[in-house]
Amino acid sequence: MTTLEQTETTGEGHDVRRRDFINIAAVSFAGVGAVAVVLPLVNQMNPSADVLALASIEVDISKIAPGQAIKTLWRKQPVFIRNLTPKEIAEANAVPLSELRDPQTLAERTTAGKENWLITLGVCTHLGCVPLGAGEGENRGPFGGYFCPCHGSAYDTAARIRKGPAPKNLQVPEHSFKSDTVVQIG
């Protein structure tokens, strides 16, 4: 290989090529090093270990009577846990999917066998306000679910968007029932 090249190029040209190669390699190494340093500098802004440790919580739901809801905090965001009454479940199931902006059935938004437990983020999908309706005596809006006072988004008993500017239903976080009285969110 080397001899071949030597016959093809003058000694001078070969030398120049080898030199360019070293300079290019040195600059490339510097570039790779710079990128390797940038990665942790960017990564440090991701959630830290203590924040991630709070990414899943367990909530005792034994004290929530049908028709009541509680607000709790998960990942520094409000979560609504509502114990639906049979009437509310019936209302939600009575709505044809075609009428919905973000079509989803109540069953899709709850756990099988626990359809009365509606667990959603308390964050309006429009611009992030906390909707009313989880607290005792709060305005639940024209569809009997939640009502966002900021721009008038109204959610129904399954927390689906029915009216107003919000594009999506209230988000259902990943959750599972540890027992009849304890639910793990996240």
């Binding site: 942790p40 440090q44 830290s48 270990a49 203590d50």
Partner: peptide
């Protein structure tokens, strides 16, 4: 200490 222990690459910084 939080930076060193919990933040991603915090110890290096």
């Amino acid at each position: 200490e939080h930076t060193v222990r919990d933040v991603n690459a915090g110890w290096a910084m």
